[in-house]
């Protein structure tokens, strides 16, 4: 699991973010990009139960709203009122 996928990851730029717990700057890619034990999945479309049919680019479909539409997996979903964690559903 990567920092960038963690709920404690605060976006900074295309290559890094900040860990809300440690306040350290953490990279998105490469060395040091693996998350720690406090990892919890961040809300993003790829983790939503309304997201399906993702392709190799992470492009899939969203059936969360009245009108079904395409979506992409890494899109942030913190602000989406239709977001439902897939993991939560499975549990």
């Amino acid at each position: 699991m990567k920092h960038v996928k963690c709920v404690n990851f605060l976006n900074l730029d295309c290559e890094k973010g900040m860990c809300a717990l440690s306040k350290a700057i953490v990279p998105i890619d490469g060395e040091g990009s693996d998350a720690c034990q406090s990892y919890q999945p961040a809300p993003e479309c790829g983790n939503c139960r309304h997201f399906y049919d993702g392709d190799k680019y992470g492009m899939g479909m969203c059936k969360g709203y009245e009108k079904e539409n395409w979506a992409y997996a890494t899109c942030g979903a913190f602000s989406c009122e239709k977001y439902e964690s897939r993991r939560y559903q499975e549990a």
Binding site: L10, L12, D13, M18, A20, K23, G76, A77, F78, S79
Partner: peptide, 24 residues
């Protein structure tokens, strides 16, 4: 706007930015 990811940093008092990124 209503769907964009809000980023709040621990040292901030004023928040909001154009996008989820710092210089986005």
């Amino acid at each position: 706007y209503a769907h964009s990811t809000p980023t709040v940093l621990p040292y901030e008092k004023l928040v909001m930015s154009k996008t989820k990124n710092f210089r986005g």
